[in-house]
Design a protein around this nucleic acid. Structure first.
Length: 158
DNA sequence: GCCAACGTTGGC
DNA sequence: GCCAACGTTGGC
């Protein structure tokens, strides 16, 4: 069981979109490290912090979970897609994704608030120059953030 | 819109 | 395999 932080631009897929759809195929990741996390390490039931990036108020906005094993990102085969990859084939797909189930919206934990929390000093997403759209979160960091969003841990399945 | 930081590409 | 040039991310 692992924990992750996954960035999404709210004008692409916001936490509200994710909640409305319940399950989101995490399409469009075109970075090998992020792909490898999804392909090799993510398991059904892993906890996910839903993060809004490239927007007015960047930060954590929700909690989700991994709900599928990895499978090929269909957009890589779609010539009309922004995420089309001419080098990918059905036989040898290059990009893998997982499905994410949105569980709930939280209050916004802004980037500033995350940076101000001493217990989160070592969080990968806060490290200088980090651009990875998917980063691991350790159990202590996860607990700290869950505490910060004041989720009733009794009801929280994660 | 700026720009730091990082990833990718491709010539050699 | 090196590395310069270019592209992307993402906060500000």
């Amino acid at each position: 069981m692992r924990y992750w932080l996954m960035k999404s631009e709210p004008n692409e897929v916001s936490i509200d979109d994710a909640l409305a759809q319940k399950v989101i195929a995490w399409e469009g990741v075109r970075n090998y490290q992020a792909r490898n996390f999804m392909r090799d390490l993510m398991r059904v039931g892993d906890g996910v912090l839903f993060y809004h990036s490239s927007c007015k108020e960047p930060g954590i906005v929700g909690v989700a979970e991994v709900v599928s094993n990895s499978y090929p990102d269909p957009t890589q085969f779609d010539a009309t897609s922004h995420y089309f990859d001419p080098k990918a084939t059905l036989e040898q797909p290059r990009w893998m994704l997982v499905d994410i189930g949105a569980l709930r919206k939280t209050r916004l934990i802004s980037l500033t608030e995350l940076r101000n929390e001493p217990e989160l000093e070592e969080m990968q997403v806060l490290k200088r120059g980090n651009r990875l759209s998917i980063t691991p979160v350790n159990a202590a960091e996860w607990r700290t953030i869950i505490r910060m969003v004041e989720l009733p841990t009794k009801v929280c399945r994660l």
